[in-house]
Write a protein that binds this DNA or RNA. Sequence first.
DNA 1: GATCGCAAACTAACATGGTACATGGCAGAT
DNA 2: ATCTGCCATGTACCATGTTAGTTTGCGATC
Lengths: 234, 234
Amino acid sequence: MSSSLRPIAPPTSLMEVTVDRIRDAIIAGELPLGCKLSEQRLADMFGISRSPVRDALAALQMEGLVTISPKRGSFVFTPDLKAVDEICEHRCILEKAAVRKAIAINHAGLIKSLTAACKTMTEASQRGNALDYTKGDIDFHNSVIRSGGNHSIISSYKRTIGPLMALRTHLFTIMNETLERSMNEHLALLDACRRKKIEDAERLIDEHAAHLVDAYRTALAETSLFDGLSTGAA
Amino acid sequence: MSSSLRPIAPPTSLMEVTVDRIRDAIIAGELPLGCKLSEQRLADMFGISRSPVRDALAALQMEGLVTISPKRGSFVFTPDLKAVDEICEHRCILEKAAVRKAIAINHAGLIKSLTAACKTMTEASQRGNALDYTKGDIDFHNSVIRSGGNHSIISSYKRTIGPLMALRTHLFTIMNETLERSMNEHLALLDACRRKKIEDAERLIDEHAAHLVDAYRTALAETSLFDGLSTGAA
DNA sequence: GATCGCAAACTAACATGGTACATGGCAGAT
DNA sequence: ATCTGCCATGTACCATGTTAGTTTGCGATC
């Protein structure tokens, strides 16, 4: 109750927070796959003008989360099976290159960040919280990439896995089956990194990616059953 | 026949052509490295409003050609030595992965497109036309990536090499020295691909990338001598 | 009854005005 | 003389009006 008359003093631009809000809504499943994203509707939903919404949609297209058809509108990106395969293959290539470099030039930082991520995942696993586990999972893979130190790859990786974001939510439902195996795979990779076994680390990344493809394909198959166009729930 | 344009309907959006015009101006060197890109000035230059210019700048940021500082403006991206190293390393990783896959699953297509690119480069080399040679060079590397067939990698590659576009022009000046070596390297890679020598192909890509880094670093060193802020010539 | 054409509604794309913010220069104080 | 604070200027960012293109639904025609 001081002199701060401005409860919301956004240091970042309105467009930036709009990007975050739409991205969160997509990841949370409030804006389902293939959902039409009307500029006017989103503007009304957030109580702002169409301009920042338009800029935000362009930025999200850059991240691979939405697709924009000229003169037709924006839609939540829906990857098909082929796209999932290609994205996972691409992701696997980047991770293997990053882990190889990280072990060589940034071993301490790699182990530290990977250990922290594994700690988060272990705790979430014990509590049976798939959402927190997945956040730790994302942290783990981001740590691998970031430890590689190549900024070009870091930014590319972010855009690469973007199209899979909308599938993440549906991955939670089947995660329980594969959670234990996933946990063991991450721990094995951490161990290989700690012992600087590059060959083993790359092999483990390959195997992990293969399992990930299966999970995403299953999630995609489930979501395709809906096949409906929802307007998005509150 | 002129009326049946409906089914395909080429969307010649004003924003799209603005993107092309600005990109061409950057590649041509009319908009030098680090040049400030005023929305109003560009809009006046093209005789249009600021809206499509703003959208075009956002798209070019996606391609890595410009950087946008919030509330400050857009600038032609200027890579430093570290960025050049990282981009070339990234690019090398993608090319090696693509050539490995292309040899395995799309050998005929790979050889065909690479041969065509080499033909263009050879002719340009004999005429001493560095510009055409470079276009063939770009075609060659794009062919490697495209023959890999992974669409995620293809789009990522485009964005990856974007930041180096502004340096391309200055590369022409020193290309004559390294043109012959570059030509031989490409021919050697084509030969390795034709004989399905994956190991050799990857090694050649590594070596070629190393030489490319040197060329870009030299170009960057030359451009940094200018250090001036030009408003762009007609 | 099916198909083609037309029209109305919707929506993205473009243009323009207002506002907040960042930068550069200048005056005044120490 | 140097530094600091204020002011002028330019610019990006947001809001809103206008236009043009696409889609959809209905009706007429075959």
